[in-house]
Amino acid sequence: MIKVFNLTKKYGNYEVLKGISFEIEKGTIYGLLGRNGAGKTTTMNILTGLIDYNRGEIYINGKMLDKNKRKPLEEIGYLPESPTFYTYMTGSEYLLFISKIRGIPYKKAKKEIDKLLDLVKLKEAANKKIQTYSRGMKQKLGLAVALLDNPEIIFLDEPTSALDPESRYDIFNQILEMKKNGKTILLSTHILSDAERVCDYIGILDKGKIIFSGKIKELKQKYALPIYDIVFENLPHNIKEKLNNVKWIADIKIKNDTVSIYINDIELAKKNILSELSKLDIPVISLQQRENTLEDIFIRLVKQNEYI
């Protein structure tokens, strides 16, 4: 449905996107992950035709997105990170205004707007001016605007980052609902648990490069490393130095009372963990093995990227 190949974007001499490539299949949700400033919004703005790009190719629904041809864009809906409206209009007036731009006849537009307002749970506020809306309500109205005229592809830039838990829950349900209706969705976020909740595929964007693109499961299989969480009776302060030259330990992190040991060779670790611990000669309260979370993987990948 969407193919991006070697996309490059420069602002002056600064390269924001350094040749990124990824592909999104029809009817799936693709999550673009990355820290703030990684280039997520730039990617979104390019794919929605708002800004130009320097090099690369973009295909939307088989049609190439050329700098001057906006035809492929008729199929998309875009919800920017902080949607802005003409706030002197009411919610339904704004939707009607956008319908007019698209040339939808009045009666048909009225019907569709009613349906959309129902879907995003904004019916009660539909006739209030947008300037009285809360952040969450604006986000919902923005979603309704993006969904207007039934686009095939929907771009959502940080759709939940500024929302309270309840609105967040609503938005996620709507995203999953859209997927059920066969929509293709690209969403960007810096909140990993959000991505894990809804995305089929993810791409990790860091410093203008895609450092991973694929299924969440693949990411976990490929990068998942077991972690031992150890709680000592007294937290040893020089534990990092002491375990530094153990080959099967990738990293050590200390959080509160717990020492987390990241393993790179599970077989060796299983055999040797107890003997290494006994060498320390400190009473151990508990020892637990767990899989690392998406967040751990993300942090590790981004860290690796720093050394390249």
Partner: peptide, 13 residues
């Protein structure tokens, strides 16, 4: 400056 054109433009204005 306040990016009010993003919605209209992305909807084909």
């Amino acid at each position: 400056s306040s990016q009010k054109l993003i919605f209209p433009y992305s909807k084909g204005a």
